[in-house]
């Protein structure tokens, strides 16, 4: 297919779980690579050693600021990519690497890990540990539509991506506490339980209709707040869930009705 976009996976300090989540789209990944995107950089999958020019950089992992190579590579990524996506909790918020204090074998001096947004400007934030496979798929399809789609598709893709762009502007800190600060304290929680379902470490239980956060368990991935229907809720997009689900299904080559 003509006019494919170019996508790279940039690996900072992360566990490769976000890449695995992308790969867990199975045939959907092949469909994306066949029709929508050329994978121009991915240390695990593509034999390219230096960050090339690309439309979309999916960055996994946080940046160790004592690691010159990592710092240089994330800066290079910003210079070479039109759109930088913080893929997953580590790139977005630091996630589990927030708890690093150095001293680990075999680079004990590596003690400071920052979300990429503290080093470079980030366009789109997709939290979670890892972000759901279908969320990454949707962002890839929407990025394609934004860059190569018809005017109508561009508008839809922009509307879809806007809340994730707003998350990028919101900052580089996340915690289960966000549910208290920005939802319950703000008088917005209605006890639906979505946050509890989204937590990858089961740190959230619903007690008397409100989330109870085990803060020692929280890894700071940002999934709960981003998934909460009262963090962002864009009626213009979500009201069209049926047609958008069909659109993505069709883009993925699933028959549909």
């Amino acid at each position: 297919m003509a006019n494919k976009i170019t996508v790279g996976h940039v690996h900072m300090s992360g566990c490769t779980g976000c890449l695995v989540s992308l790969a867990d789209n199975y045939e959907g990944l092949f469909k994306i690579l066949d029709d929508y995107a050329d994978l121009v950089y991915a240390l695990t999958l593509v034999d390219v050693r230096h960050v090339p020019e690309m439309d979309v950089a999916l960055v996994e992992g946080s940046v160790c600021i004592q690691d010159e190579n990592a710092v240089e590579e994330i800066k290079e990524t910003r210079r070479k990519a039109k759109v930088v996506v913080a893929l997953g909790g580590c790139a977005s918020y630091g996630n589990i690497t927030r708890f690093c204090r150095g001293g680990q074998w075999n680079q004990p001096q590596h003690e400071s890990y920052l979300p990429i947004g503290d080093i470079i400007d980030v366009d789109v934030t997709l939290p979670g540990c890892p972000p759901g496979s279908q969320a990454i798929r949707n962002v890839c399809v929407m990025a394609y539509l934004l860059l190569q789609g018809s005017d109508e598709q561009k508008a839809l893709a922009a509307a879809y991506l806007t809340p994730l762009m707003n998350l990028a502007k919101r900052g580089t800190e996340a915690c289960g506490c966000d549910l208290m600060y920005d939802v319950i304290n703000q008088g917005l929680c209605m006890g639906c339980g979505t946050c509890a379902a989204s937590c990858p470490v089961r740190a959230i239980t619903m007690v008397y209709g409100k989330p109870q956060i085990d803060r020692d368990m929280c890894i700071k991935c940002g999934a709960c707040y981003a998934q909460c229907p009262r963090s962002f809720f864009n009626f213009d997009v979500i009201n069209e869930f049926e047609s958008i689900t069909e659109l993505i299904g069709a883009a993925m080559g699933q028959g549909g009705e």
């Binding site: 867990d24 279908q134 949707n138 991935c221 999934a223 229907p229 869930f241």
Partner: peptide, 17 residues
């Protein structure tokens, strides 16, 4: 609303949509 958001933005909802 939470359900449909989870369907379109399955951030912490892998394989749910």
């Amino acid at each position: 609303q939470g359900l449909r958001k989870a369907q379109l933005y399955p951030i912490g909802m892998r394989d749910v949509p």
